Computed example of a mutant assay.
Amino acid sequence: MRHLMLLAALPLALTACNDSKTPATDAGAPLPAGIAAPAGQNWAEVVTATPEGGFKMGNPDAKVKLVEFASLTCPHCREFHEAAAATIKDKYVASGNVSYEYRNFVLNGPDFAATILARCQGAGAFFGLLDAFYADQVGWTESFGKISKTDQEALGKMPEDQAVRRMAELGGLADYVKLRGIPRAKFDQCLADPAQAKAVNDLRNQAVNEYKLTGTPSFIINGTVQEGVFTWPDLEAKLQTALR
């Protein structure tokens, strides 16, 4: 993680994000008949942590299994989330025909800290925090670009867990997440937990080494990486094809 930590105070333009400027496609075909959720539930309320390290929403036996690898600090990931999250949840996941799993692909130090804080709260809170981090992305990332050179040098000399926690403090994340239900004691606990850090690093290694992903957001449908698919219109067309 040390190479990610060194990015903590750099501008967050994030050239590792994919270029999302691709043309829209028509995906207006009707969905197959829905599959009933357990009594008293909506499939979008069925959220679990997966053995692969992500958080999954929806019918575990859905015909189409969608996985997104994304970063909390990637502007294109934010744009995708703004365009797609509600429709994925309310139309596709709610039908029972599609499950949606989010796996973090961290790109830098602020992303690493925010990802741990979101994941550490468990499956029930994860997607709500995901929505907040994307909605407020421009605001909460801004302070990290103002970390002084002196503080950056000090971070580089600390043990990794201490450096992550201190960087998050300098970037204002403690105050940000406190307003979203994460008290300071939980903030400290999560960022000091080596199991949380390992899980995030393992997901990054999975993205790079197993799936050969080079940017975010990236998508996998039923185990197949969707090459050249970065926008919601393009992805929705792929989902419609998989549902036929």
Rank of each mutant, 00 (worst) to 15 (best):
M5G: 06
L6M: 13
L6I: 12
L7Y: 09
L7D: 07
L10M: 06
L10Y: 05
L12S: 13
A13L: 09
T15E: 12
N18L: 12
D19H: 04
D26C: 11
G28S: 10
L31N: 02
P32M: 14
G34D: 09
I35Q: 03
I35T: 08
A36N: 13
A36M: 11
A37Y: 00
P38S: 05
Q41E: 14
Q41Y: 15
Q41L: 15
N42I: 14
A44C: 12
V47C: 05
T48G: 08
A49S: 11
A49R: 09
P51Q: 11
P51M: 12
E52M: 04
F55E: 15
M57K: 01
G58T: 02
P60V: 08
P60T: 07
P60L: 06
P60R: 06
D61P: 12
A62L: 00
A62T: 00
A62K: 00
K63L: 04
K65M: 04
A70W: 09
T73S: 07
P75S: 01
P75I: 01
C77H: 05
E79W: 11
H81V: 10
H81R: 13
H81M: 11
E82Y: 02
E82Q: 03
A83K: 07
A84C: 06
A84T: 09
A86I: 14
A86C: 10
A86M: 10
D90I: 04
D90W: 03
K91R: 14
Y92V: 07
A94G: 13
S95T: 09
G96L: 03
N97G: 02
Y100W: 11
E101P: 02
R103V: 02
N104R: 04
N104S: 06
F112Y: 15
T115H: 03
T115N: 03
L117F: 07
L117N: 03
R119M: 04
R119T: 01
A125P: 02
F127T: 01
F127D: 00
Y134E: 03
V138N: 04
T141A: 02
E142W: 10
S143M: 15
S143I: 13
S143Y: 10
F144Y: 00
G145D: 11
K146Y: 15
K149A: 15
K149L: 14
